[in-house]
């Protein structure tokens, strides 16, 4: 979360920042009920009933090997399998989430998979929590209420035409090359009108444009957010998928997964992300296959802090 400034953000940017800023570990239920392979369906029924839960991971030495839900329980009951081992009835292919992933990835996972809960694992792949939609709703409501209170406490500030304080989120759709670049043009004019040096404006414009084109060419759609104050421009790109399999490759100059059509539009030379990094003072990327990619690029507006190589 952005702690350095207190200016009210545009609402969608606030939500976007929230989804970036919150990590799964902060939101998940840490008290997890799980069963081992040795348990039978009768045990499962007792634990679910006593704790009012609708599903449980099955673990072997803290590793998740399956998930058993109310549905499996009903099937077992119907077919007289209550004394069977849980292994017989559980779903063996489980999608887990990493605890340090941003919440936005989890939301994509809920959209992509039919599961109503995801086991959460740490770096050692050990079960540390469980994430349901309820967790996400609670976290979002809690955070949004906190921010609303904060905004109410702030007195309204007059609009200043010379002020650099600005925030806005643009939506980008897949293959919409016609609109890809509009946001960057607007931000470029905004900075130019406020007397930001041309070289700095160019760096912001290049980073923003490359990210815009990435959203249009490579993602199934997403958002590009700008958060500007007198010290820096922060550009956040956030898409809904498909996610990058190997981020290191994506950061290698010349590596590209672009198809012929993207190339016919003049893009896909494999220079996009490296170019964003080149012009940025701070750069961060996170991605997970099936869940999405987020990139954050910061460009300082105060010369003493700027990237020396520019």
């Amino acid at each position: 979360m952005n702690k350095e400034h207190k200016q009210p953000l545009q609402s969608s940017l606030r939500v976007q920042e929230l989804l970036y800023g919150l990590r799964i570990i902060e939101v998940m239920t840490k008290k997890v009920f799980a069963v081992t392979r040795n348990c039978n369906m009768r045990d499962v029924q007792a634990i679910m009933k006593n704790n009012s839960i609708s599903g449980m991971p099955v673990v072997d030495n803290k590793r998740v090997v399956g998930i058993v839900t109310m549905n499996d329980l009903m099937n077992a009951l119907e077919q007289g399998g209550m004394e069977d081992s849980v292994i017989k009835w559980m779903a063996g292919e489980v999608q887990t989430l990493a605890e340090d992933m941003p919440l936005s990835f989890a939301i994509s996972a809920f959209g992509k998979f039919p599961f109503r809960q995801f086991p959460v694992v740490n770096k050692k792949n050990e079960l540390t929590g469980i994430l349901t939609f309820r967790n996400i709703n609670h976290a979002l409501i809690r955070e949004l209420s906190r921010q609303l209170r904060e905004m109410e406490q702030q007195s309204e500030q007059p609009v200043d035409r010379a002020s650099l304080n600005f925030s806005k989120v643009y939506q980008l759709n897949r293959y919409d090359f016609e609109n890809g670049g509009k946001a960057s043009s607007r931000i470029k004019s905004f900075l130019k009108e406020r007397g930001v040096p041309p070289k700095t404006v160019r760096r912001v414009a290049v980073a923003s444009y490359e990210l815009e084109i990435n959203l249009v060419a490579h993602s199934i759609g997403g958002m590009l957010g700008f958060d500007i104050n007198e010290n820096r421009v922060k550009i956040s790109s956030h898409d809904r998928g498909p996610g990058i399999g190997n981020v290191e490759n994506a950061m290698t100059e010349g590596f590209s997964t672009a198809n012929e059509w993207i190339r016919s539009q003049g893009f896909g030379a494999g220079m996009g992300l490296p170019n964003v990094k080149r012009v940025s003072d701070e750069f961060a990327i996170e991605s997970a296959v099936g869940m999405g990619t987020m990139v954050q690029a910061i460009i300082y507006l105060k010369p003493e802090k700027q990237n020396e190589s520019q």
Binding site: F177, S185, V206, G270, M271
Partner: peptide, 30 residues
Amino acid sequence: LMSDVLMSDRDDLLLITSLSTEQSIRSAGI
């Protein structure tokens, strides 16, 4: 390739391209 154009950090630049799309104009502007 607009990606190559965007790598340029020269001033007083002229762009020659066979890519006759709006993105050529945008990239030049950027």
